[in-house]
Amino acid sequence: MKYMILTYASQQDYDGMAGKATGQQAWSAEDFAAMGAFMERFNKDLEESGELVETRGLGAPVHTRRVGGGLDKGVPVVTDGPYAETQEVLAGYWIVECDSFDRATEIAARLGHTPVPGHVAARSFADVRPIAESRAELEL
């Protein structure tokens, strides 16, 4: 069974990670390195257990183009940067293939141990959602 683990961040969080304080504290170089090392280990463990399908981090929310929401003279509307600075949006995901929802939850729970500055840790969370692989599963 496949599950998606999703993590979220705002543009301000991205700025903090980039070492810029815009409403949030900036991360130190050590903070950033510790998180990177943890993520490498986390992904490597998942690869070794054979449970990782893929993982990606997304670019900063400011680089978002929203397409749609109606037509303007028969042409889809494209909006640049539709998010507010503090709005938390999808920041990265893992797709894992494992034997149960409980196991996927356990994997996501390990993310709770990511070393991050205190003000970030307090409001970090991850969502775990089952992936519907086919129309039949979607209808379940």
């Binding site: 463990d45 257990s49 054979g50 494992c98 034997d99 196991r103 729970a109 390990r110 141990h113």
Partner: peptide
């Protein structure tokens, strides 16, 4: 409360259970 089990890196079963 989700706590991590000691054997975190259990191998995935390639076959469906």
């Amino acid at each position: 409360r989700w706590t991590l089990s000691g054997e975190w890196r259990v191998p995935a079963a390639d076959l469906p259970p």
